[in-house]
Write a protein that binds this DNA or RNA. Sequence first.
DNA 1: ATGGCTACGATCCGTAGA
Length: 258
Amino acid sequence: MTTDVKLATWNVNSLKVRLPQLLEWLAASKPDFVCLQETKLEDAKFPAAELQAAGYQCAFAGQKTYNGVAILSRAPLAEVSTGIPGFADEQKRVIAATADGVRVICLYAPNGQAIGSDKYEYKLRWYEALRAWLADELARHPRLAVLGDLNVAPEDRDVHDPKLWEGQVHVSEAERTAWRALLEIGLKDAFRLFEQPEKSFSWWDYRMGAFRRNAGLRIDHILLSAPAAQSCATCFIDKDPRKAERPSDHAPVTAELR
DNA sequence: ATGGCTACGATCCGTAGA
């Protein structure tokens, strides 16, 4: 087990488009683990060689057009698994692996589309299956880190304009309850372990100059087991990649364990 | 400010994201 472990999550919204930005960001940020979402690539097209050349081993589960998750790691990955056990799902949203004495779980939660829709029901079922599985994983792995685009803004302070978002997906009571259930099994929201700037968000709509106006949501999260949270020294959102030409609509979130 | 971006795969329009 190493002393310092830097973990990050980033919804890249197409790894094909964002690979140059990812490589640049890896070189600058030097994380030990990166969880990626919305790779939108079939496994045969995953840029494993380029990432290996940059110093990262990869575990990935993708599909054409939608979804797709990956874990990049400097240390060799073991115990790779995909999906939520017992929850049949065609959509590639979950991958897990162990390295450096840390169990890393990468998630891309369903969007939910609209309250009451089939996709919303699927989101809530997905969260319920996730909670049950993570409770098991917590019992198995003392140093557990769950990272990803969870598509829930847990509190009103995670929403630029709560009134505007009232009644929409990402902020509904059922979604927030599902998110809090992850805390109730023992996970900690790494971002809230520390004092943070007001109006900290991880996603901004591409439209209407939302990033310029900081009209965003905090929906990308790092959740840590109690021992991992104990050793967490910092957690922050890196807005720089969102300023790039042709950016992802999400910014990376990073945590460091000592 | 709210269907006013972006990516994708099918064709210059629909689906989906959040």
